[in-house]
Simulated assay, not measured.
Amino acid sequence: MTEPLADPSTDREALLVELVDESGRATGACSVAEAHRAPGILHRAFSVLLFDLRGHVLIQQRAAAKTRFPLQWANTCCGHPLPGQPVTEAAAIRLREEFGLAAELTEVGAFRYRAGDASTGRVEHEYDHVLIGTLGEHPPQPDPAEIAHWTLLSPANLRADLTESPGKYTPWLAQVLDLAEQATPS
């Protein structure tokens, strides 16, 4: 069975996100745009990190048109489930929309963070579920409206560059990598 892709004409900023409390319990809903207006409203999100068979991670440089943290490097893909939508279902759909990929995803943890984007004035205040999977044989087919560039890096090289040049990366990537590495056997 295949998941339906989002209507490309959909204004992603008008979609609903699920608001949550500090423990991740649902408390309501609002639009993506409203949730990301300063000071930010805590809402459910997900971050996917795919590993290839050599253990390298697939990361993307977010497209220039992104409304938050454009042109910064991030995990394989991320997004928001609709209110009541299972996180793994939403993540699988987003992975297909952004990269044209399918993978079996496993949730390995969650964390909360708040980060302001000085370039856009928007704020991420998210209860972020981290999911990992294995990159299959099919090459990524990124949507240029979502992804400017992509690469595969060893976690050690990514960690070193995150330390050396943190401004190149989204503020959540280090925590996503931490949870993914804790769940991945060495």
Rank of each mutant, 00 (worst) to 15 (best):
G55A: 12
H149I: 04
K66V: 05
S47W: 00
Q60S: 10
I132L: 14
V130H: 00
R25Q: 13
Q175C: 04
R122L: 11
V57W: 01
T134V: 09
E181Q: 15
V48F: 11
W172H: 14
V130L: 02
S154L: 05
L101V: 03
G55E: 13
E22M: 03
P144V: 05
G100F: 09
R122E: 01
Q85Y: 10
H80M: 15
V176H: 00
P4V: 02
W150R: 04
A65M: 08
Q141H: 11
E107L: 06
A65D: 06
P81E: 01
T88L: 06
S154F: 07
A45E: 04
A180I: 02
I93E: 09
L49Q: 03
L152N: 01
G84Q: 12
A6T: 14
F51W: 10
T151R: 15
S165D: 02
M1H: 14
N75R: 01
R114Y: 08
L153D: 00
G121Q: 10
W150I: 05
P39N: 08
R54S: 14
T67E: 06
F99M: 15
T163Q: 12
L153A: 10
T27A: 03
V20A: 01
L135T: 04
Q61V: 14
Y113G: 08
C30N: 10
N75T: 15
A90R: 10
L19D: 07
F111I: 14
L82Y: 04
A63C: 13
V87D: 03
Y169S: 05
P39A: 13
D52Q: 08
P142Y: 12
V57G: 00
G55Q: 11
Y169D: 01
D178A: 02
S186W: 08
V87I: 12
A35T: 10
G84E: 13
S31R: 08
L153R: 12
A115Y: 04
T27V: 13
H125L: 14
R62L: 07
A92S: 15
Y113W: 08
D128H: 04
D52A: 09
N75I: 06
W172Q: 07
T120W: 09
D117S: 09
F111H: 12
R96Q: 15
C77M: 04
R12S: 10
G100H: 05
Y169G: 01
G133T: 04
P8C: 00
L5D: 00
T27G: 02
F46V: 03
P142L: 11
P4N: 06
T151S: 15
E126I: 07
D7A: 01
L158F: 12
E126Y: 03
V87R: 00
T10F: 00
L58I: 09
P140W: 11
V108L: 08
T163C: 06
L131Y: 02
E104T: 13
S23H: 14
H138D: 06
Q61E: 15
L50F: 15
P171Q: 06
E98F: 07
R94I: 02
A148G: 09
